[in-house]
Computed example of a mutant assay.
Amino acid sequence: MQTTDKWSCGITKIMDTFSGKWRLNLFWIIAQNEGIGFNQLRNQIPEITNMMLIRSLDTLLVEGFISKSLSGNKAPFHSEYYLTYKAKELLPLLLKLNEFGKYSD
């Protein structure tokens, strides 16, 4: 699905954001482990490459579903990821869709 200027459906926008192979998985992991670090995320999904992890996180950051906090006095800094208010509002809807998907025939 691709969002266009001519037909810009809200559901399409959400589907575009989460259509990447790893994005929804990352969203769920962050929702369950707020303040999780980059390496912890990497360990949760062993199949993901560093580049795909970075790209997927960047998409979720740009779309406003997660926020990133940096800590430490010098590089390399420690990154922690959190759900945003926007994501927390979406979470119950995704949980409902998850339940629907499990039990629909």
Results as ranks from 00 to 15, higher is better:
M1L: 01
S69M: 09
F38D: 05
E99R: 06
S104V: 11
S67C: 01
I45D: 04
L41V: 05
I48K: 04
L91Y: 12
F38W: 08
R42Q: 10
Q32W: 08
N25A: 15
D5G: 03
T4L: 04
H78W: 02
L57Y: 11
F27V: 14
Y81M: 00
I11P: 00
D58Y: 08
S19D: 14
L94R: 11
G64Q: 10
K88R: 00
I48D: 11
R42S: 09
F100H: 11
L93H: 15
I14F: 13
N98C: 08
D5I: 05
L41W: 04
K74S: 07
S8G: 05
T17G: 14
M15D: 14
L57Q: 09
K102G: 06
Y82P: 05
Q2V: 04
F38T: 05
L91M: 15
L26E: 07
G101V: 04
L95K: 11
K102R: 10
E99V: 04
L24S: 05
A75E: 00
I14T: 12
K102P: 07
D16P: 13
M51H: 13
T84R: 02
M51W: 15
K96L: 15
P92F: 13
F18S: 05
F18K: 09
K68Q: 09
I54A: 13
F38P: 01
N33V: 09
I11T: 10
L90N: 03
I30G: 04
L94Y: 02
I54M: 09
N43H: 11
W7N: 09
D58V: 03
I48W: 03
K88A: 00
Q44C: 14
Y82R: 05
D16G: 06
L91K: 14
F100S: 14
N25D: 15
G10D: 11
L95C: 07
S79A: 11
Y85L: 00
K74L: 03
K96C: 12
Q2T: 02
K96N: 03
G37I: 00
S67W: 00
I66Y: 09
G72L: 01
G64F: 13
A75L: 04
W22G: 07
E63F: 07
K21R: 14
L83P: 14
D5C: 04
K88V: 00
G72W: 03
D58M: 04
S71A: 07
L94I: 15
T59A: 08
Q32T: 07
P92S: 15
I45N: 09
E34W: 00
S79R: 05
A87D: 08
N33C: 05
Y81H: 03
S104T: 12
F77D: 01
I45G: 05
E63D: 13
S67V: 02
I30L: 04
L91E: 06
G101E: 03
F18W: 07
L83Q: 10
